[in-house]
Amino acid sequence: MRKVAGLLLIVLLPVVMKAQEVPVADKPVVMISLVPQYAFQSGFRMDFDLPLNERHWIQLAPIFFAGNNVEMSITTADKLGGLALHAYHRYYPDAERDRFQPYVAWGPGFQHYAIDYKVYNGNVRVSKHTNINRIGADLTMGFVSQGSALFFDCYAGAGIRQAFLSGDKDSGEQFNDTFLDFGYSGVLFVAGVRVGVMIKKNKR
């Protein structure tokens, strides 16, 4: 009888222990963040990070641009409007969520800008309008702070862009001077900070 009880205890011990396990860290179900540096380009970017599993996430980054007198390297946009969407696949090589969690992210993006501006024709300023459609892809690496509902994410990497101009596109070089310009085509440095909230679901 004792032997049977002992055997039963050994067999059931893992089950009993599992039942007594304390809840582990909450599992994030969505991360919502703002990317403040886009404000320098009259842009408002809000990111939504959605988990596929513990290591793989999808990051959707819609951006809205609107502003008057937006300065670029060569010209100033009297009026700027634009929409963009970037989508990234994020991979966290270490699923353990403590301190700063490193990750790598890659994905494509599309941007559309409508720009009203003026150029000099002799001594006369002439109004112009150019539409820019730009495609590209980025590969970045970064760290996300963990341990709180509020998180910070610092990232850096490289990307590539190709712009297609329409409208008054003959003055396209005005939008393609540095990698910060809306009509830039080429390889560029990508870096930034995201700050946001991590919405969690209790994982038991």
Partner: peptide, 16 residues
Amino acid sequence: RLMWVPQYLFNSGMRF
């Protein structure tokens, strides 16, 4: 390992 080589940016290069 996935490594970024940032100095290639000075030559308009994207190297991983």
